Simulated scan of single mutants.
Amino acid sequence: MLLEGKNAVIYGAAGMIGRAVASAFAREGAVVHLAGRTPATLREVAERIRAAGGTAHTAQVDALDAAQIDAHADTVAATAGSLDVSINLIAHGDVQGTPLAEIPLEDFERPVHTAVRTTFLTARAAARHMIRQRSGVILMFGGDGDPLPGQHLGGLQVAFTAMEALRRSLACELGPHGVRVLTLQTGGIPEVIPPEFAERAAITDSIVTRTLLGRAATLEDVGNVAAFAASDLARSMTATKLNITCGAEVD
């Protein structure tokens, strides 16, 4: 198993992407520490992981709260013996569909504030332990890219680009301590679009038609790539993004 003996913290573990990543980590042998704001949904994820033979722990944590983030990371490192993988998958609260010339300031800056603050806080908390261990992997989710005509993403792409700047700086500073920092980039995951959303079909079509493979990345794809990135098989990879856009983003 790729992650046997590793302790992985997943923030936003109750979301669809968080569940996929947590399940993949547990399948590959990691002890997963599920963090989020809603205990009931975290317990559901943990129960499914345990039913499949994995090991999962839950904790109510607000990723916008520095004290809570630090205390949880300290507890994981102290009780489990290490903190080996950290990934932030919380929702950014973005507002899409409104042109930038018309969007209210608070709607524009909400995802930027949330993404940068939570990514910094969760990475900082993990880094303090990983530096001491001289090993560890910090994963981010998003990736910068060019917007397309007709896409009114508000502050979301700005938030992703800011996260990439943070990822580069973290990788540069933490590399000498044996800590790797990577971004998982998709071109959109149709499975996370609510079925009742009126424009679901149109958005799915726009995601798929941009790809070179004629399909979009799935939640399972994201989980599998995250497990690989966190494993020693990817030990030579840092300061970069893993392109899982099915060719929508050409490097």
Rank of each mutant, 00 (worst) to 15 (best):
7 N>V: 08
7 N>I: 07
8 A>C: 05
13 A>V: 02
18 G>F: 06
21 V>S: 08
24 A>R: 09
28 E>W: 02
29 G>H: 02
34 L>N: 02
37 R>M: 08
38 T>S: 14
39 P>S: 07
41 T>V: 12
42 L>C: 00
42 L>R: 00
43 R>K: 10
44 E>R: 03
52 A>L: 07
63 A>L: 07
71 A>E: 13
72 H>R: 10
72 H>G: 01
79 T>G: 00
79 T>A: 08
87 I>K: 04
88 N>W: 03
90 I>D: 03
92 H>D: 15
94 D>R: 14
96 Q>T: 15
101 A>I: 12
103 I>L: 13
106 E>V: 14
106 E>S: 11
107 D>E: 15
108 F>V: 12
113 H>Q: 05
122 T>M: 03
123 A>E: 06
124 R>T: 00
125 A>Q: 06
138 I>L: 11
139 L>T: 06
139 L>K: 09
139 L>H: 13
147 P>I: 14
150 G>R: 09
153 L>E: 12
159 A>R: 01
159 A>K: 00
163 M>N: 10
163 M>K: 11
164 E>Q: 12
170 L>S: 03
183 T>R: 02
189 I>K: 05
191 E>M: 03
193 I>W: 05
207 I>H: 05
213 L>P: 02
218 T>E: 04
224 N>F: 10
225 V>T: 14
231 S>E: 13
233 L>V: 14
242 L>G: 12
243 N>W: 03
248 A>L: 11
